[in-house]
Simulated scan of single mutants.
Amino acid sequence: MASPKLRFKEFDGNWLAATLENLAEVERGKFSVRPRNDPRYFGGEMPFVQTGDVTGSDVYLKGYSQTLNTDGIRVSKVFPADTILITIAANIGDTTITKYPVACPDSVVAIQPKREKANTIFLKNIIDLQKDNLDSQATQNAQKNINLQVLKPLELIVPSKEEQTKIASFLSAVDEKINLLTQKHELLSQYKQGMMQKLFSQQIRFKAEDGSEFGEWKQSLLGQNCHITTGKLDANAMNANGKYRFYTCAKNYFYIDNFAFDTEALLISGNGAHVGYIHYYKGKFNAYQRTYVLDGWEHNIQYVKYYLDKYLKIRINSEKKEGNTPYIVLSTLNEMPFQIPTFEEQTKIANFLSAIDQKIEVVAQQIAQAKQWKKGLLQQMFV
């Protein structure tokens, strides 16, 4: 039928079409208990892998948030190691491979390659290339989903088992490089968090340029050190061709036709999935009505941002009532305890943490570039 642009020289001949069910056993997970969170079925030793666990993994399953006991296993379905898991609801088409037996609910499908026909890593990668195709076939009810009637007849173009294995070995080496970069990123992030803890608890102190000790930190409230207000606009104000930035409760920003602020400020998402996320911006902008704008600082604003990065989420969670979605009211910010070293020490702390952030960003870019390079390889190595 066809052959890829990029190929190992010892192989030739066309790749052939095969359905997913011809290459693997395709079974839906199961968890028949209602309500789903009935505690009688949880707390054992069997990993219970759900859509979020799959989405949060890489090539191999990173972990799981729940386990099933013996009763839970009876009402679920267990799949062996070396099974490809694919999400069929919410984030459709995310995949990972198991290294140990797991149980799954019906929002996850287990794909067990037939050993004589398919290599697991090869099959995972070729399925990943079908993510957009699968998403386009999803039905929209309460949430998007697909079913076995979509997955089983999914047509894939594949080579011999020997060529699959060769490709899989090469891609595993690429994935290992990405994994090493990811580990480096995680270690740098952990190092930053550890240093923030030591710096803000004053276990570690900088010295002045002349070698002298800095003075005691002052204790204050956040609202006594800045002006706190909120934006006035709703999402309808967004304009793709607008001139000024418009900050919302999400991590990103949009554009708008007019501005309300012309200042150096920290902008804090007041509710939603990214509650407590902190933006820094200097210039003309506007803000969503549940985004807090903190300006008028006499402190090093980067120091303030790092301080809030460390303690704001803790304060938000301490105010959260059981069952409530976290959100910020004005008193959350106004009455938040705030520690103030001298401006010179603030600057040293901010510069130190900023240097770590720069290293983290370099590694993040290396990861993104490696993933993009792999994506380009896949497009050339697969039909």
Rank of each mutant, 00 (worst) to 15 (best):
R34S: 14
L221G: 09
L68W: 00
N317R: 13
T182S: 15
S160R: 10
Q380G: 09
S220A: 14
K77A: 11
Y60R: 15
A250V: 05
Q224T: 08
D58H: 12
Y280W: 13
D12N: 13
I349E: 04
V49G: 03
D12R: 11
Y280K: 14
P153I: 02
I73P: 02
T120W: 08
D71L: 14
I126N: 02
L222T: 02
I314H: 09
T51H: 00
I349Q: 07
N14T: 12
S201Y: 02
W297Q: 11
T291V: 15
L181H: 15
K305R: 15
F285L: 12
V293D: 07
I316C: 09
I167H: 01
A142Q: 06
P105H: 04
A90V: 00
Q346R: 03
N133C: 10
A265H: 07
N300S: 09
T70S: 15
Q202D: 03
A208V: 05
H227Q: 14
E344V: 01
G93L: 00
K348P: 01
L151H: 05
N179S: 15
K243R: 14
L222K: 02
L333I: 05
E163R: 04
K321L: 13
I268D: 04
A138L: 06
L199M: 10
Y303H: 12
K124T: 11
T51A: 04
T120L: 11
G43D: 08
D295C: 12
K313C: 07
L330E: 13
D128S: 11
K305I: 00
R74C: 02
I204Q: 14
L353F: 02
T96Y: 00
D128I: 00
E116H: 12
L151N: 08
I204P: 02
T139I: 11
A237C: 12
Y247M: 06
T83K: 02
I86N: 00
L378I: 01
V275R: 08
K114L: 13
N69D: 13
K124L: 13
D257G: 13
F79A: 02
G215V: 07
V49W: 01
L188T: 03
K62S: 15
E335F: 08
K371N: 13
S189W: 03
N351L: 11
V78S: 04
